[in-house]
Design a protein around this nucleic acid. Structure first.
Length: 497
RNA sequence: GGCGGUAUCGUCUAGGGGACUAGGACGGGGCCCUCUCAAGGCCCAAACACGGGUUCGAAUCCCGUUACCGCUACCA
């Protein structure tokens, strides 16, 4: 036994070689919902021990693409959700799927059905017209063996249906507790497991593969709850032990509907490109449907593993709130050392054409100091890059609002800037403290508030009314560049007077 | 329609019959800090879906109702 139940709602897992899997279909990008499912599977394995496997469910040939498969790998790699063993491609297991179906047919647990799709559609429509739920009437369920043989030999197309037994099917879901389905309510009766073209239907392929991969805990979205009784019946018929099932709630958009493109960015790659940190994404996703308790929110990945518990999983669908994701990212940004952030910021700066990598590497201490200043003010690495522009490129752009407000009186502004320049130029050392002494001294001599001096200067230096502390800005810019910026501002004011 | 699932501030959640005047966080509002912007600190508004039980006592247990979500394919 891989677990023990101490009371119906508290399930404690021993550290054991559990085998879990994430099984996406490669029909799009890695969705945040899929990423969260993968994360919980991964956390489970890291916490309780075992292997986390990856299976690509590419049996829908029409919709599956290699691009999509690659995007899923990249997404998982970016998040750091590494998997064990080789990736399993469901499409490669066709022979086993068919062998499992053959076994079921031989055992009389499944049968060939010669009803055509057109006939079925008609019956479905008729049932609907009568206001009834359609159920396959089982007309092929008891065909004489010789008739079946004759029709198969004649090349008549058929599907294979699974014989759903009477009774009910239930299991104890790791997140939902006991769930029971009367078998008569499982789908439309005897369900199809093999298509006319000899390929398996999802439920059969999944069970066959999960058995072959030795999966002990099936953790997936709760949109699969109604597939579960079918799958349990298949395990039974195949004579295999059942895994544990854990059905995670869905993620919805702000309008409460299932998350889709309409809600904006839904692929993890979108967030990567927005400058979200993988650990922040993981942290945010983990909190959607799980809570460690004790009001803990911001966690590193090792902390998440430490605190994770399968019985603290929530049953309720969660809404994806990008505001909180951004806040979370800001928290992780603040937590990271500038040196850790540097590679990300360098990549952004180079991509924006603001500097070359060689240039940045050559003045790494300066860059680290700049990152230190900006990271607390930014919510994404992209924002750090944007805020770094005035320190990297000349000439700077003046923000019209800042100019209008801080240089309102042209004459006075020019005068103040010139006096400021002189005071700064006279400073013995270009360091924060002497510069501060110089400027505060100037303000006092003119009996004006320091802010009245700093704001026009800030616009001259950065083009913006918001920046890190003014002395830090002066130091980052250096003496020459600072004085030039002031000169440039004076010229600008003169020209636009 | 049938079946299944879910229900605490706008959002993520804490809560395991008395510790609930329902806690934290995001977002919103205000104040403080302060050269601006952030960050940080403090404060405010904001929720147990509804109705019945069970119980001395219910956000917590049970039953209904309602709402929302999912499934209902020779998709996965």
């Amino acid at each position: 036994m891989s677990f023990r139940v101490s009371c119906p709602s508290a399930i404690t897992f021993r550290v054991m070689p559990h085998r879990l899997r994430f099984a996406p279909s490669p029909t799009g990008y890695l969705h945040v919902g899929g990423a969260r499912t993968a994360l919980f599977n991964w956390l489970f394995v890291k916490k309780y021990g075992g292997q986390f496997l990856l299976r690509v469910e590419d049996t829908d040939r029409a919709r599956s693409t290699d691009d999509s498969t690659r995007a899923i790998f990249e997404g998982l790699e970016w998040l750091g959700l590494d998997w064990d063993e080789d990736v399993v491609y469901q499409g490669a297991n066709l022979a086993r799927h068919r062998a499992d179906v053959a076994q079921l047919v031989e055992a009389g647990k499944a049968y060939r059905c010669f009803c055509t799709q057109a006939e079925l559609d008609e019956q479905r429509k008729a049932a609907e017209a009568r206001g009834e739920a359609f159920r396959y009437d089982g007309r092929c369920a008891h065909l004489p063996a010789d008739e079946v043989t004759r029709r198969v030999a004649a090349g008549e197309p058929f599907v294979v249906r699974f014989r759903v037994r009477e009774g009910e099917t239930s299991w104890t879901d790791l997140v939902h507790g006991p769930i029971t389905f009367p078998n008569k309510d499982i789908g439309e009766g005897d369900f199809i497991i093999l298509r006319t073209d000899g390929t398996p239907i999802y439920n059969l392929a999944v069970v066959s593969d999960d058995i072959a991969m030795g999966i002990t805990v099936v953790m997936r979205g709760d949109d699969h709850i109604s597939n579960t009784p079918k799958q349990i019946l298949l395990y039974e018929a195949l004579g295999k032990p059942l895994p544990q099932f854990a059905h995670l709630p869905m993620i919805h958009g702000m309008d409460g509907k299932k998350l889709s493109k309409r809600h904006g960015a839904t692929a993890v790659g979108d967030y990567q490109h927005m400058g979200i940190l993988p650990q922040a994404m993981l942290n945010f996703l983990a909190l959607l449907g799980w809570s460690p308790g004790n009001d803990i929110e911001v966690m590193t990945v090792p902390q998440m593993i430490e605190l994770f518990s399968a019985d603290d999983l929530s049953k309720k669908a969660a809404i994806f709130d990008t505001k909180k994701l951004e806040w979370m990212n800001g928290q992780h940004l603040a937590l990271m050392a500038a040196a850790e952030l540097a590679p990300l910021v360098i990549r952004g700066i180079v991509a924006a054409g603001l500097a070359t990598e060689a240039d940045l590497k050559a003045r790494e201490p300066w860059l680290l100091a700049l990152i230190e200043l900006l990271k607390i003010r930014a919510r994404t690495t992209d924002e750090i890059v944007r805020q770094a522009i005035p320190y990297l490129r000349d000439p700077i752009d003046y923000d019209p609002d800042a100019v209008a407000k801080q240089w309102k009186d042209r004459e006075a502004s020019r005068d103040i800037l010139q006096a400021t320049r002189a005071a700064l130029a006279a400073a013995a050392l270009w360091e924060a403290q002497p510069l501060e002494d110089a400027l505060r001294g100037l303000a006092e001599s003119r009996s004006m508030g320091a802010g009245k001096l700093f704001q026009p200067l800030r616009v001259a230096l950065t083009g913006s009314a918001a920046s890190p502390g003014i002395f830090d800005v002066l130091v980052m810019l250096g003496r020459d560049r600072s004085l030039e910026r002031i000169d440039g501002a004076v010229r600008y004011i003169t020209q636009h007077a």
